[in-house]
């Protein structure tokens, strides 16, 4: 069985306890997740959770099914293998004495990073993009010394439109098959 990563997107009820429910589900069933990001959608009644999970195909299938089984989960979509956009946002505080500052700023520019804070000895950079880009940047600045780093975890969305604008979809969103 080969292990792979999968990006799973779930639309859930936006109410207290739902995130705890889902993270509890992953913990109690021993599923491995690389990241979990959550935020409100265009409809304030719903949130979208993006999970990057790891496992063989049988485990990934179980993860999707167990998620769909949760009553507060409205829809589960597997994005891997489809045409989707994914982004991860990172804030990174790099050690930056005056002599090195130019090099770091250049690197940040190549990666389309934004300088969000600058001090005598450090620069804080905001950078977003797919996981590989973020990781490549981290490796490049590591030699300068990293003070702190924080990431949102991946968020993802399918390209194109599925036919219904958000407003019309509000009452019609439902899971295909669940229990």
């Amino acid at each position: 069985m080969t292990e792979s990563k999968q990006v799973i997107s779930a639309v859930v009820e936006n109410r207290p306890g739902v995130l705890a429910h889902i993270s509890g589900l992953f913990a109690s069933r021993g599923y491995n997740i690389d990241s979990l990001a959550v935020g409100e959608t265009e409809n304030p009644l719903y949130s979208r959770i993006t999970v990057v999970a790891r496992g063989d195909e049988a485990i990934l299938e179980q993860i999707r099914k167990q998620l769909a089984k949760v009553i507060d989960v409205i829809r589960v979509t597997e994005l891997s293998g489809q045409n989707f956009v994914e982004r991860d946002l990172m804030l990174i505080k790099v050690n930056a004495p005056a002599a090195k500052r130019g090099e770091i700023l250049e690197l940040a520019e190549v990666f389309e990073g934004k300088i969000v804070d600058i001090g005598v000895k450090h620069i804080m950079i905001e950078i977003s993009g797919p996981e590989q880009k973020i990781e490549a940047f981290v490796e490049l600045v590591r030699p300068y010394g990293i003070h702190e780093l924080v990431r949102t975890g991946r968020v993802a969305m399918l390209r194109g439109v599925s036919g219904r604008p958000a407003r019309a979809a509000e009452s019609g969103e439902e899971k295909k098959s669940k229990n």
């Binding site: 859930v12 009820e13 009553i71 409205i74 009452s171 969103e173 439902e174 899971k175 669940k178 229990n179």
Partner: peptide, 8 residues
């Protein structure tokens, strides 16, 4: 009506 619960 529960959007997230439609047993098959």
């Amino acid at each position: 009506h529960l959007a997230g619960y439609r047993p098959h």
